[in-house]
Design a protein around this nucleic acid. Structure first.
Lengths: 340, 340
DNA sequence: CCGCGATGTGTGAACGTGCACACACTAGCG
DNA sequence: CGCTAGTGTGTGCACGTTCACACATCGCGG
């Protein structure tokens, strides 16, 4: 109905050229920092830019340069997990830091629904970004396929099972889960259970595998409580269920700190003391770990480091320095505190 | 040194035209859904698109259309607050939902440093987005000035003091702080303190003002502990300080749930029972509120609603439906639980 | 037979940049 | 004087779309 609003037209390089009495080329050379611009031309141009309020059009520049100096940060999360998982924020900040150093703009794209998924795919393939960091992709995620066919430089944080020839950054979930379980056993616990989550992702499945391997003969499948999300409430519910099945439980490995915090609450409600009656260990070393009373013993996940490493990999691919897909594993120290 | 990597050139509309034996115009009409395309032309074009793997260039489209169908979501937060504040995640998802409904892409821009600030300003002014939602801007934030001079449709969540003629969405911090303080007093508390935060923003200052007004004659400035951030650890520290100054304290209003959670921990450590010895109320109704034991009585901040309202305002400005700057206040019910 | 609206198609001109190239001037050197 | 290298400047074209316009065909009524 209504015609386009009569917004003021923006100043272009032509306006500046007319105002400063030079040609477009000279302005372009000044702005792109190529040199070969006389002092007087420089001053005239700078004055003209201020006068007409000129700002270069990112869009036009992107079109002719065939690159945007922007990298996408794709978050694909169901509502609740995005809010509960403190790692994502850390990963994001780490990636932003690395991109910022190379003067790249990070654009964070959130996928909440299938509709979002399509739109984001269109954007990514439409030359909107020079590359992308993808976090928490699931098995058979449409985005994974899009990234493969589009040939866009990409690095995944974590690796969905259907990754082919694409770079990823992660931690050794299996080894670190095995290690912390072993340390829990070394405190003398005899009946140790696990709250496992997100078994459709590598992180979840590998943590369970590490737990199983550490227990060896002593592994009892009845002591594993699988849940969907790494959330506080699921942790509390799983812990209650576990206590009902095995009242003699004296140790628990929770697949994330949020789960452990929920479990801690359920244990307290059930009258169990931590660590006296039950030893509890978590995973991530997120804010949860220090916030709990007692503070959690946990595997330190270098979240910011993961973001940085993923971003650097994408930048290297863009620059052409990294041509082969790489898998990067970061170290995971263990923070041994009071909960076990 | 190295020349540009020999990346495969992307297919353009010309390639499709040649392949399908039609002209560019017909393809454009099909893709933009204008109609006036015969059935046979449509089929030929669709087949050709699949064959050559054509994806429209967002950049070129944006240039000629003078719009991007994207809205920026600008987060300006120091490291720690961004991670601690659960509201931002909710606001983001609410905004994304509203934008998604109108087929707009949300691009989230994170400002972590001054360098980021400049780069983001360049992007916003460079025609990269059609509008922006800005959260948690501070007093004299450079972004506020950029938004003013650039004439870009914008809506702030919360209102920094130097807002001029720009739309914003928020809650009545003063009235709701006054209301919950009054309810706390109605439970019979006589010595009520407050943990105040972020007094350089409207939210922080207004919550303190509401508290003061509710107390009237009984207000004692010694019972106010001001801190910088809405964080758990600052809440714990402030609570300890407050108890030292006034051991006879029997009620506390914390300016956020995160602060309240920290305060709760400090109270427990000091041997005070909640709510028996001390009544505690918070603000936000974030995940913290239900997670604490006992659960917090608090002011419900409609975070997702704020995001949605801000996004809708920006969309209305883009469409030209909203020409005057508007201030939108959302309702804040009170959730009365167990902590007071 | 002309005019008219509806449907379908092709063509040229933008959009606002960057880049390659041509050109002008100066200084230095044989 | 001519040749070269260095510096500074202007011009045409390309980037990949969309949009306005011109044009063609058809059916139909006056």
């Amino acid at each position: 109905m209504t015609s386009t609003p009569p917004r003021r037209k923006r100043a272009t390089v032509h306006d500046v050229a007319r105002e400063a009495g030079v040609s477009r080329g000279t302005i372009s050379r000044l702005l792109t920092g190529e040199g070969y611009v006389s002092a007087e031309a420089r001053e005239a141009i700078e004055a003209a830019i201020r006068k007409v309020g000129y700002v270069p059009s990112t869009t036009a520049r992107n079109l002719v340069r065939q690159r945007t100096n922007a990298v996408g940060f794709v978050v694909h999360e169901p509502h609740s997990l995005f809010l509960e998982d403190p790692n994502i924020g850390e990963i994001l900040l780490g990636a932003n830091e690395a991109l910022s150093e190379d003067d790249y703009q990070m654009v964070c794209l959130v996928i909440g629904s299938d509709r979002d998924s399509e739109r984001v795919a269109r954007y990514l393939r439409g030359g909107f970004v020079d590359g992308a960091v993808v976090v928490s992709a699931r098995a058979h995620d449409p985005i994974t396929a899009v990234m493969r066919t589009s040939q866009l430089p990409v690095a995944f944080v974590g690796h969905p099972p259907d990754l082919q020839g694409q770079s990823w950054v992660g931690i050794d979930n299996l080894a670190s889960a095995q290690e912390i379980t072993a340390r829990l056993l070394a405190t003398g616990r005899r009946r140790v259970g696990m709250i496992a989550a997100a078994l459709d992702r590598d992180s979840g499945a590998d943590r369970l595998a590490g737990f199983t391997r550490a227990l060896g003969d002593r592994f009892d499948p009845a002591l594993v409580a699988p849940v969907d999300l790494y959330s506080y409430s699921e942790g509390a519910a799983a812990m209650s269920a576990l206590l009902e099945r095995a009242p003699d439980l004296d140790g628990v490995f929770a697949a994330s700190d949020a789960l452990a915090a929920g479990a801690l609450d359920a244990l307290r409600r059930a009258g169990r003391r931590v660590p006296e009656d039950v030893g509890l260990v978590g995973f991530d070393d997120s804010a949860w770990a220090r916030r709990c009373t007692p503070q959690l013993s946990t595997v330190v996940q270098p979240a910011a480091g993961l973001g940085r490493a993923a971003a650097r990999s994408v930048l290297a691919q863009i620059a052409g320095d990294q041509t082969e897909p790489a898998a990067i594993l970061l170290d995971t120290p263990i923070a041994w505190r009071a909960s076990a």
